[in-house]
Design a protein around this nucleic acid. Structure first.
Lengths: 338, 338
DNA sequence: TTGTAAGCGTTATCAT
DNA sequence: ATGATAACGCTTACAA
């Protein structure tokens, strides 16, 4: 099998200098028509394609986009990857994944190294890592392109795509109240995350606005895992009088609530309504199917990809390109009128 | 001071030639102890790391490993990615993901292009794409390194890691029979996939060997989706006399069975036992928790990574390095003695 | 419009 | 044990 042709081969075959070939493959205008056609013919014949590494060494670009995350939610990750790829592969970029440990010792350095080592052209950062000011600052300081996906507006709109979890939870609150719910418990997410706070506040504030009070003992901080959901649900369902509805910060924990309710012989949704967040794989499959909130993850990822590519290529992102998307309610069977 | 140090900087700082630095970073033995230590110190201080593109240009390597798949199971993908990364990042490789459409027109070309475009050093292929002889042949013909993950031994052991689904299902069959089950229905996977066939055959043959017959009408071919599971479960549970147990080719479909059973007022596991395959996110969270089969996906992925790196670096894979792993039964609450 | 030549950051071939 | 120096395949000042 012959070697792959290089720019030199093409130049020789076409009887021109490689500089001219370079002009052609980069679409420069100042090349004679005849010359250009001859070169293009040779390129066709030989099947020449510029070597990305050599090119990158010269231009210090790699055509690689990095994805940084520390998130156990495989379904979320997968959706993001596909969303990003839908854009970047069509623009000639590849996606390099980089799970990391948010809380580990040298996590910022690790991410920086990742970018440096492979000359990654830009990175997309997922929550909760995306909430790290430390990382964002480091990136900025080294002038590395980045776009964050988050639930709070904590960066220049050029560098972020945010989902308005607060608004979505406001919707959920209104929905539940409209069905007559007044006695509502909450299993929140870890409060060190902005996203968890946003959801909690969005929910509670709207509830309050509608005249529904949420006593302190009815809000329990969970850890977003199934097991944590079970634990918190127990704490909540032991209390008497018993709550008539529970909102859990994600579907995993909501599934935990279903589990506990089942154990305790509490029928959902007849005796207890349950709401989740994510529209996870679980949501539709669990019994009863969960009413939950769906973020347009794939769309957000695609927007993030467009932004990062714009940064890389120095093209203007249309200033109005959406940076804010709103999740919406998915109504299934786990909430009932009371 | 924003610039990344190069081998030249290190050489200058250490007062040696770059050739010597190169020797150190590549672990050559013929470097004086004092020199080596001095250089290592400088590398530490400066945080130098060799540029992959430059290195690649020199060695015609990219230090990129590709992951090719067409599999909707996000959890599986995520486990694989992490398993592969656990090995390859520690060896200095990055992971580039490439979901594709197995059944689309130019799928083989698409994969080849993916490899060529970025000089990917080698690819790991996941089921069901890994079953494609077409792709494997093309890769071989272009002498592109690859390793397949599969459920059947359909390639040179150097190029494959297989999970012995057949054996695992044999175990499941024995387990069910030991609990007195004789009246068993099956929702199989698409029979064009080897993996589905293996599972079905492994299950049925062992059942037969134990004197349990599985009439033809009690085997229904599903599509591995939740919805398909629902559909097939209906077909199966309508039949009278009714089966006392169902094995579904994956947890998604098993969850569908639970759904239908619930609708029809059939209690699981009291009136109907259910088994799945995958040990999906769902398995433990569904009610009742599913008895299922767990493949050591992460381990398989790590083995695949080791193999592909060995191919790339031309180092011998210890011929005996495992190529066969055995999934094992996870016993939960969905199968009951009868 | 076209070409010359100097990089980009490595590794590899020889010497010394 | 160490170091010049030439690749690797491309882009890009700077000429012509």
């Amino acid at each position: 099998m012959n070697k792959r042709p290089t720019i030199n081969d093409v130049a020789a075959l076409a009887g021109v200098s490689k500089r001219t070939v370079s002009r052609v493959i980069n679409g420069a205008t100042n090349v004679g028509k005849a010359t250009r056609e001859r070169i293009e013919a040779v390129i066709q014949e030989t099947g020449f394609a510029p070597d990305k590494q050599a090119r990158g060494l010269s231009t210090s670009r790699s055509y690689l986009i990095g994805l940084i995350y520390d998130n156990p939610d495989a379904l979320y990750i997968d959706q993001v990857q596909r969303g990003v790829l839908s854009i970047c592969s069509q623009k000639g970029y590849e996606l390099v994944v980089h799970p990391c440990s948010y809380n580990a010792e040298g996590f910022v350095e690790d991410c920086i190294n990742f970018v440096r080592r492979s000359n990654i052209d830009g990175v997309i950062i997922l929550p909760p890592v995306s909430e790290s000011k430390l990382l964002a600052d480091a990136l900025q300081q080294k002038s590395i392109n980045y776009v964050r996906m988050a639930s709070v507006d904590l960066d220049d709109h050029q560098n972020i795509v945010v989902s308005d979890d607060r608004a979505a939870l406001s919707d959920l609150a209104r929905y539940m109240v409209s069905l007559g719910h007044k006695d509502i418990g909450i299993i929140s997410g870890p409060q060190q995350y902005y996203s968890s706070k946003e959801r909690l506040e969005g929910f509670v504030e709207t509830l309050n606005g509608l005249g529904v009070d949420v006593p302190k003992n009815r809000v329990i901080e969970g850890k977003n895992s199934f097991e944590s959901g079970i634990e918190c649900a127990r704490q909540l369902l032991i209390q008497s009088p018993r709550v008539k509805a529970i909102f859990a910060n994600n579907d995993e924990m909501a599934a935990g609530v279903l589990k506990v309710a089942h154990e305790m012989g509490i029928t959902v949704p007849d005796e207890l309504s349950v709401a989740g967040f994510d529209d996870n794989l679980l949501a539709a499959r669990v019994i009863p199917a969960l009413t939950t909130v769906q973020r347009p993850v794939g769309d957000m990822a695609a927007i993030a990809a467009r932004k990062i590519i714009a940064h890389i290529e120095g093209s203007e992102v249309s200033e109005t390109e959406t940076y804010l998307v709103k999740p919406h309610l998915i109504i299934r069977d786990s909430i009932k009128k009371v």
